[in-house]
Nucleic acid binder design. Structure first.
Length: 874
RNA sequence: GGGGGCAUAGCUCAGUUGGUUAGAGCGCAUGCUUCACAUGCAUGAGGUCACAGGUUCGAGUCCUGUUGUCCCCACCA
């Protein structure tokens, strides 16, 4: 076996280890009826891009959970995959084509799709490689893609089912239209931002009168589609005009004045132009008053033939011309600057136009209800649970879901129209003839489905549903979904109602929500800001384990976190510490004779570290079960660094370097035992380095991935002994602090004189005290005066320490130190005394608390006496 | 307009169901090249837990209000 290097260097082993894991099939899930399944579906990254920090965190969390469960003996399935990301990918490919000077339409649907699949091969594959780099232990043999055969079957089945239940319908409604992508968008796909604009006040003359009504609008070009002006029914300014007719400027149309509660008297002029084809509110008003719907815009955002003289102009050019023409005719009353919320496409950022259009919709009300109930009844739990409120908020206010997209890349809508008899056919298998008239002239709907329609089926489509496959029966419903709060409305919610609707079960039991990874200044990482940090660069510099750990420490579920190099460095330093601790143990164990585990006579320090280990196992396991990964990591780091490295390894040195072979063997046995357990506890967080170190340990074989997760063992908790040993640690710390206080170099050995009842405990640990406190000898005395020279002294838990320091003693500094200590102790006495003087505390608080408080008070009173005596002696 | 988050050390953040003297990392100060590790060791300074009330024997933690700040949704044409 090669020797371990002095510093941790992840480049030496991360790649090799991942390949070994994969080769040995450790990631592959097995349907094992003997075992309890634990299933996690990876949120499929879009094939448009590459892994960013958010993916790194999301997948690290999943991997950590999944490795933990695997070691605990569950039959684990972590199923990976990628998303075709209909609109996002199509935008990318159109961009690419544009660079080549090719128009999508000219290329044709078939050739376009060929290119899209090529794109998928290239970028989908790259994402897989990136996921491997961070150590993801997912089952690549079950890798899924939202447009593969499995998922496509599921999409057909789902659409078919909803269609025949009447939950999918086609209708002409106001939808969000993206003139850039030339497709409809769902409400969730529109992002709003405060944009500067203008408020144009326009005069509409009243027919047969000198009077006119002034309306205010932010989008004058839509006036060509106006079919009414609305006023509030209780507005005295306009009541005489209700029912009258207005002459719509720039057109030869006449439109009525209608009264509608929707109009806010206080806002604008109190009169609103109504354009049912281009505004959702106006559409509603139009329905109430039976208004005509006149659409004046084309799909590309230009004006259509109904825009008269403005036909063919782009919407913004038309706006300019219309405003100019109104002004020329004296109909423009005024123009005010006005900032308002404008919707933008979440993919191409074009300004979205509300347009009336014929689209496919999912009726949401009947689906939302069970999805709400399932969370209310705790069948699915959000972690942290405040996200349940956000989920309710969405579902309770949900509108029908527009699922058709005028795109090519995606699941084509499984609906055909018979050109002979007009029949509409929704089928699972592509029909060849019309089932009604037998005609063969069938035309499939041109549109594809919203990309989230297939994502919504992810937890079961990937397992083969609607087939009752072995995987589906064993692994569904899944156990945990790990994802960011930003996609609750897009995805989590839709998986919930889909799972309930199609499988009758919630798709997952727990939803672990995490926040965003932000940059050092707390800003969102984004392409436009150029502040994104590539996880692969970080891995290259520090290793995957360091990145993983840095993304999980100090993070609470659901909270955003900032990425800083400092955090990664801190993690790297910790891992280096683990590396060197292991190196120390391995070097000492090399060639040494180890006693059988049962034959070791444990020393007090051994019992202490084993006890600490048990506490650590218990706390870490509990935290892991609650998905408190940050807490689990903190506890592990604390145990490993402070308890194991700083204390136990130092405590072990007298035995290791001493003459007593039995003690030495026993100590080595304990070192190995604790290290082995610690590595297994750490493995889910830092899988590579723990695997590498594991291979150096004597007596281990195979992969740490297949080792058991440590279990808390009451028999090894040694509570009493551990507590007693804490007294020894306290003594060592006290001596160190005393030396520092009087400027005595830590390397200078001092004589210790102790007044104590714990002689046995101290004698048992003499070697450790001598070494760690820097003592030359230890003597027991009955009182400080026995030392016979000037001393500094200090009371600690198990004794009263006197150190003769001769010339080194600075009386003034020592007095200051003692006075400060006295202050502190007096404060404690006041606090504890006050508490105990409160009869309510004594009678109502738990007895143990009261007893503890009494004991403390006594201890502090004793300390106070001793300090006062010392001050006198000075 | 509706909903939610956050406010704790100089900075970034933890703080489980209310219960010792409120923690960590980084930074800072002082001292250490002791044979695992300077990516280290030891010791230390640094906090009216935003503010005001309330519940409780006891509040960083629960309740109400205030201020500041961030996010999501809706949206006045």
């Amino acid at each position: 076996m090669t020797e371990m290097q002095t510093t941790y260097n992840p480049k030496n082993f991360e790649e090799r280890i991942y390949a070994e894991w994969e080769k040995n099939g450790y990631f592959r899930a097995k349907v094992d009826p003997e075992k309890v399944p634990f299933t996690v579906m990876m949120p499929p990254p879009n094939i448009t891009g590459q892994l960013h920090m958010g993916h790194a965190m999301d997948n690290t969390m999943q991997d950590t959970i999944v490795r933990f469960k695997r070691m605990q003996g569950y039959s684990v399935l972590w199923l990976p995959g990628t998303d075709h990301a209909s609109i996002a990918t199509e935008v990318k490919i159109v961009e690419q084509l544009k660079k080549e000077g090719i128009d999508k339409k000219e290329l044709g649907r078939e050739e376009f799709l060929r290119r899209a699949w090529a794109w998928k091969e290239k970028y989908g594959g790259r994402i897989v490689e990136q996921l491997k780099k961070i150590g993801s232990s997912c089952d690549w043999s079950r890798l899924a893609f939202t447009m593969d055969e499995r998922c496509s079957n599921a999409v057909r089945e789902a659409f078919f089912t909803l269609y025949h239940k009447g939950l999918i319908y086609q209708g002409s409604r106001i939808i969000n239209w993206c003139p850039g992508c030339k497709t409809a968008l769902s409400d969730a796909e529109v992002e709003y931002s405060e944009d500067a604009g203008f408020f144009w006040h326009i005069k509409y003359p009243v027919e047969g009168s000198e009077e006119s009504v002034v309306v205010a609008t932010t989008r004058p070009e839509t006036m060509l589609g106006d079919t009414a002006v609305a006023v509030n029914p209780s507005d005295p300014r306009y009541s005489h005009l209700v029912g009258k007719t207005l002459l719509l400027p720039l057109t030869d149309r006449r439109i009525p004045v209608v009264a509608d509660e929707y109009v806010d008297k206080e806002f604008g002029t109190g009169a609103v132009k109504i354009t049912p084809a281009h505004d959702p509110n106006d559409f509603e008003v139009g329905l109430r008053h039976n208004l005509e719907v006149i659409r004046v815009m084309n799909d590309d955002g230009s004006m259509n033939e109904l825009a008269g003289a403005y036909a063919g102009l782009d919407r913004y050019e038309a706006r300019k011309r219309i405003v100019a023409d109104l002004e020329a005719q004296g109909l423009l009353v005024k123009v005010e600057p006005h900032t308002h919320n404008v919707g933008h496409c979440y993919r191409c950022h074009s300004t979205v136009e509300p347009i009336v259009s014929k689209q496919w919709f999912v009726r949401m009300a009947p689906l939302a209800k069970p999805a709400i109930d399932a969370v209310v009844k705790n069948k699915t739990k959000f972690i942290p649970d405040r996200f349940a409120k956000i989920y309710y908020n969405w579902l309770e206010n949900i509108k029908d879901w527009c699922i058709s997209r005028q795109l090519w890349w995606g699941h084509r809508i499984p609906v055909w129209y018979c050109e002979d008899c007009g029949e509409v056919i929704c089928a699972k298998e592509d029909p060849t003839v019309c089932p009604k008239c037998g005609g063969a002239h069938l035309r499939q709907d041109e549109d594809v489905l919203d990309t989230w329609f297939s994502s919504a089926l992810w937890p079961f489509s990937t397992l083969g549903w609607p087939e009752q496959t072995e995987d589906f029966r064993h692994f569904y419903p899944t156990d945990a979904l790990v994802t960011g709060y930003d996609i609750i409305p897009f995805w989590v919610m839709r998986m919930m109602f889909s799972g309930l609707e199609y499988t009758g079960k919630v798709p997952f039991r727990d939803v672990l929500i995490h926040g965003l990874v932000r940059d050092e200044q707390g800003r969102k990482m984004s392409k436009s800001l150029g502040n994104g940090i590539d996880p692969l660069d970080v891995i290259d510099k520090y290793g995957a384990d360091s990145l993983r750990l840095s993304l999980l420490t100090g993070v609470a579920p659901g909270n955003d976190t900032r990425y800083t190099d400092g955090k990664v460095e801190a993690s790297r330093n910790f891992i280096n510490k683990v590396w060197n601790a292991a190196r120390f143990v391995v070097m000492n164990a090399d060639g040494a004779e180890l006693p059988a585990a049962g034959e070791v006579r444990l020393q007090p320090a051994d019992r202490w570290i084993i006890s600490r280990l048990q506490t650590c196992i218990r706390e870490v396991t509990l935290a892991m079960q609650k998905y408190d990964l940050g807490i689990a990591a903190d506890k592990l780091i604390d145990f490993m660094w402070n308890d194991f490295c700083d204390w136990y390894i130092e405590l072990s040195k007298p035995a290791l370097y001493g003459e007593d072979a039995e003690k030495k063997g026993g100590t080595l046995r304990v070192l190995l035992f604790v290290l082995d357990n610690a590595l297994r506890l750490l493995h889910p967080f830092i899988p590579f380095v723990t695997e590498e170190i594991y291979s150096y340990l004597p007596e281990t074989s195979g992969s740490i991935m297949t080792a058991d997760y440590p279990r808390y063992n009451t028999k090894l908790s040694y509570k009493k002994e551990a507590k007693a040993f804490e007294g020894v640690i306290d003594l060592i710390k006290t001596v160190r602090a005393m030396k520092v206080a009087v400027n005595c170099p830590p390397t200078k050995k001092v004589k210790l004189f102790l007044v104590t009842d714990a002689k046995r405990l101290i004698n048992l640990n003499k070697g450790a005290i001598v070494r760690l406190a820097g003592a030359s000898e230890i003597s027991f005395i009955e009182s400080g005066s026995e030392v016979g020279e000037k001393t500094v002294s200090q009371v600690c838990e198990i004794c009263h320490v006197f150190i003769p320091l001769g010339e080194l003693v600075n009386i003034e500094e020592e007095r200051k130190r003692l006075e400060k200590e006295l202050d502190r102790v007096m404060g404690e006495i006041a606090r504890a005394g006050g508490k105990l003087a409160n009869s309510n505390f004594v009678s109502k608080a738990p007895k143990k608390l009261v007893d503890d408080e009494r004991a403390k008070l006594e201890k502090f009173i004793d300390m106070k006496k001793k300090i006062e005596k010392q001050l006198e002696d000075l």
